[in-house]
Simulated scan of single mutants.
Amino acid sequence: MESEQVILSGQAVELRPLQASHAAELVQAASDGELWNMKVTVIPGPETVDGYIATALAGREAGTVMPFVIVRKDTGQVVGSTRFWKIDRKNRKLEIGHTWLGQSVQRSGLNTEMKALLLEYAIEVMQCVRVQFTTDELNEKSRAAILRIGARQEGIVRHERIMPDGRKRNSVRFSIIDDEWPEVKTMLAAKMASRLTPIP
């Protein structure tokens, strides 16, 4: 059964359902830093974007993926992508992943608000008891970003996947569980409020 398509809207960012028509905008966003050249994650480029979108939409059709484009509300510009995937409704868990932002908006506060929107929807609307995150052991920036939003590191999964260049990737797994969400939600709200406080 196809996953529901929802729009998640905050003050600075809006998450809209990914469509095939977003291909050019995703490539434009990824060109901000030529992110497709990164070795520690898979980000669509001009040659791979159609397959990237097709895989996401097939997952949505199967009911295991909810893919989004990340839109800046002040400009209407697509600046990246993220998704719920590994959706397991029986066990009420999922993973937030395939997340990337153009280089110029990284560490801008958009990621914090986006993750808050996703976590709120997953835990409060979809009634998830577990939300997990997985990143490359070598991706120090991603690991730090996941810890900053209140997730706990659980361990390292060895040779968890084969990267496009053939490297056997060790992945670090993190999670936030439903019991932790009230504290995490308060912390994220404080982080977002501090971003909006004018600097004297």
Rank of each mutant, 00 (worst) to 15 (best):
M1W: 01
S3M: 07
E4M: 10
L8M: 03
L8R: 05
G10R: 01
A12E: 00
V13A: 00
E14V: 01
E14F: 00
L15Q: 03
R16F: 10
R16N: 11
P17K: 04
Q19F: 11
A20T: 15
A20K: 15
A20L: 15
H22Q: 10
H22F: 12
A23L: 06
A23P: 04
E25T: 09
L26H: 06
L26N: 09
L26M: 10
A29Y: 02
A30V: 10
A30T: 08
S31L: 05
D32L: 00
G33M: 00
E34I: 09
E34T: 13
E34V: 12
N37Q: 15
M38Y: 14
K39R: 15
V40K: 15
V42P: 09
V42F: 09
G45T: 09
G45L: 03
P46S: 13
P46C: 06
E47Q: 04
T48A: 03
G51S: 08
A54R: 02
A54Q: 04
A56G: 06
V69I: 13
I70G: 06
V71N: 04
R72V: 00
R72W: 00
T75R: 10
G76L: 07
V79H: 10
G80M: 07
T82D: 11
F84A: 15
K86M: 11
I87W: 09
D88W: 01
R89F: 08
R89P: 06
K90I: 12
K93Q: 15
L94N: 14
L94K: 13
L94P: 14
E95T: 05
I96G: 12
W100I: 00
L101E: 13
Q103R: 14
V105M: 11
V105G: 12
G109Q: 10
G109M: 08
N111P: 14
E113V: 03
E113F: 02
E113Q: 01
M114R: 06
M114K: 07
K115H: 09
A116G: 06
L117G: 02
L118D: 14
L118V: 15
L118W: 14
Y121K: 05
Y121V: 08
A122T: 12
V125S: 10
M126H: 07
Q127H: 01
R130Q: 15
Q132V: 04
Q132E: 12
T134N: 13
T135E: 07
T135F: 01
T135D: 06
E137S: 04
L138Y: 05
N139C: 10
R143F: 01
A144L: 09
I146W: 05
L147Q: 03
I149P: 01
I149H: 01
G150N: 02
A151L: 01
R152S: 02
Q153T: 02
E154V: 06
I156R: 03
I156K: 02
R158P: 08
H159E: 15
E160G: 05
M163L: 14
G166S: 05
R167P: 01
K168T: 04
K168G: 04
S171E: 09
S171R: 05
S175M: 11
I176K: 02
I176V: 10
E183M: 14
V184K: 05
V184I: 11
T186C: 06
L188A: 04
A189I: 02
A189Y: 03
A190M: 07
A190T: 10
M192T: 12
A193S: 14
L196M: 12
T197C: 04
T197G: 02
P198D: 03
P200R: 09
P200F: 06
